[in-house]
């Protein structure tokens, strides 16, 4: 399997190298949104004497830089690609090879992240300097961040696949994946840190999977929660990963039976 991954990795890297500019533009688009929210919260905080809840301006900077960093590691485009592959029949050759199509998606994801990682870091350093960032991170937070971001990535990837797999039934998964993305947008900690959401929305965000993808690892990275809380939140991440792993296996099996190999 390692040899297969290496070969896929090399091929994907070659493919990606043809679209360097496009990759960087996408990455910039990913950075722009959190930076806009950061700027908005900084304005709100300044208007209220420098704080909103427990966050001051430098905390907001740390949160949104962490969030952007986590977003880069965690986010996957697979739902969009998958719909396209099902509609165009491009999934068919992959289904007929002795390798589960999920492996191609994993490699595509990893390569995309690697090729945009350095420009992203440069952007984040600029943002950090501009907003005079302050992290409250301890070594223990850093230690917990690694498994937490891995769980967030697994959760995002698996849930993305479950959503994408609905393309087997609808062929047009775009509406479903857009709805899902709105869920991420509202509940994952993009609009505001989860701790600042009003009571009902905060409860809801902790009951839904979205916050466990982005908000939780971002808070752990900036040192915004104590270690005990971090461990509880990571427990929540693990539960959602298991739920989506089981869902993915079931939905995939049923979906492949349903697949009508449209156009191919």
């Amino acid at each position: 399997m390692i040899r297969t991954y290496r070969a896929l990795f090399v091929a994907q890297l070659q493919s990606a190298s043809q679209y360097r500019v496009q990759s960087v533009l996408w990455m910039l688009l990913e950075v722009v949104r959190p930076v806009i929210f950061l700027a908005a919260w900084v304005a709100v905080a300044n208007a209220q004497g420098g704080r909103v809840g427990t966050y001051d301006v430098r905390d907001f900077a740390a949160y949104y830089i962490s969030l952007t960093f986590v977003l880069q590691i965690v986010f996957s485009w697979n739902a969009y690609d998958f719909e396209f592959e099902v509609r165009q029949g491009r999934l068919s050759p992959k289904l007929l090879r002795p390798l589960h199509p999920i492996h191609y998606a994993i490699v595509e994801n990893v390569v995309w992240k690697l090729t945009t990682f350095i420009p992203l870091l440069i952007c984040l350093v600029i943002v950090a300097l501009t907003f005079d960032v302050r992290f409250r991170t301890t070594p223990a937070h850093l230690l917990l961040f690694v498994p937490s971001v891995a769980l967030g990535a697994a959760l995002s990837f698996l849930s993305g696949w479950v959503v994408a797999t609905t393309a087997f039934w609808t062929t047009r998964v775009h509406a479903v994946s857009t709805l899902w993305d709105r869920g991420v947008f509202i509940f994952a900690g993009m609009i505001a840190p989860l701790a600042l959401l009003p009571g009902f929305l905060q409860t809801l965000s902790l009951a839904l999977p979205f916050g466990y993808m982005l908000g939780v690892p971002a808070e752990i990275l900036r040192g915004g929660v104590d270690i005990q809380t971090a461990l509880v939140l990571m427990g929540g991440q693990a539960i959602w990963v298991v739920i989506f792993y089981v869902a993915y296996q079931r939905v995939w099996r049923a979906g492949v039976r349903q697949y009508s190999a449209v156009g191919a």
Binding site: R3, A7, Q14, Y19, S92
Partner: peptide, 25 residues
């Protein structure tokens, strides 16, 4: 299938063959 492609469009076929070699062991 005559009207369908299974190769990666952006890379030379030789590289796709290598990938297939590993997939099919």
């Amino acid at each position: 299938m005559g009207n369908r492609s299974q190769l990666v469009w952006d890379i030379p076929a030789a590289d796709s063959f290598r990938v297939l070699q590993e997939i099919y062991r």
